[in-house]
Design a protein around this nucleic acid. Structure first.
Lengths: 137, 137
DNA sequence: TCTACACCCTGTAGCAACTACAGGGTCAAG
DNA sequence: CTTGACCCTGTAGTTGCTACAGGGTGTAGA
């Protein structure tokens, strides 16, 4: 399988596939006489795994660990569970952060009276010196 | 005001202040005899504005626009409203994406039976070849 | 046979928004 | 007079790609 086919089969950019090889996430494949990369089904499975993990938001280093773990079929899956749970916690933290952001943005935008910049509440709330910042730390 | 004091007053890293100057987000301040940066209250207000906008998740380019707009006090604040609303929409999109991720992660993790890697449902669901991927495009 | 075109190769630079050095200079206190 | 906290410049690193530049290869049609 040539790189374009592999990329197509996994909805990945060709450049990304080469990038994964470069950072040793995907093993270097055999080469054709004309130096084209030639991938096996093993590579396809591996890249599919990577893509799916990436779609779930795992960082590349987490994906690397998950790949290593997945090869060690006899071991307990505790480590896998821990990586996934840590990631879930991180996702939840981000959701909370963004939700707080949304509230604040909604509030600020809602206060806009659509007049001139001079009395724009949005600008005003950005310009206000944060008095509590130091205390909040 | 020296850079450390300014940084402290705005809960910013010293390096970040210099970075903002480098990308022309913050005007270069006067210099002391020993070449130390010497900031005015104008700079303090400007940097506070930047920090507050950054805390609200605005990209640096958006902050740049907001700063320019904030100087044009006579103009309508429509443009400000639009930048803020676009950002809010983006935040909401991210929340939706992360919520979908959370559901999926929760589902996958919940299926874990805490056995060996060989029958780990998490690894399994990552390894499964995405059949619908092509069709979904 | 020529030539267009799609595909492949390597290597490097760019994106966002900082952060972290390395390798220096300055200044006030003890 | 030395210690330590601060300041300076400039460059490289972070994450996860993406986008060239400048080439080579393979195949199909005129």
């Amino acid at each position: 399988m040539k790189i374009g086919e592999l990329a197509n089969a996994t909805a990945t950019n060709v450049e990304t596939v080469r990038y994964y090889e470069k950072i040793s996430l995907l093993a270097p494949p055999a080469r054709s006489a004309s130096n084209y990369r030639s991938y096996s089904n093993e590579h396809l499975a591996r890249l599919s795994f990577i893509r799916r993990a990436r779609d779930l938001g795992f960082a590349l280093e987490a994906v690397r660990e998950l790949l290593t773990l997945s090869d060690d079929t006899g071991q307990s899956c505790e480590a896998v569970d821990q990586i996934a749970s840590a990631h879930l916690a991180e996702v939840e933290r981000k959701i909370d952060d963004l939700s707080a952001l949304r509230s604040e943005l909604t509030r600020v935008i809602g206060s806009c009276r659509h007049g001139t910049i001079a009395d724009c509440k949005i600008i005003e709330s950005l310009a206000s010196t944060p008095q509590l910042k130091g205390a909040a730390q």
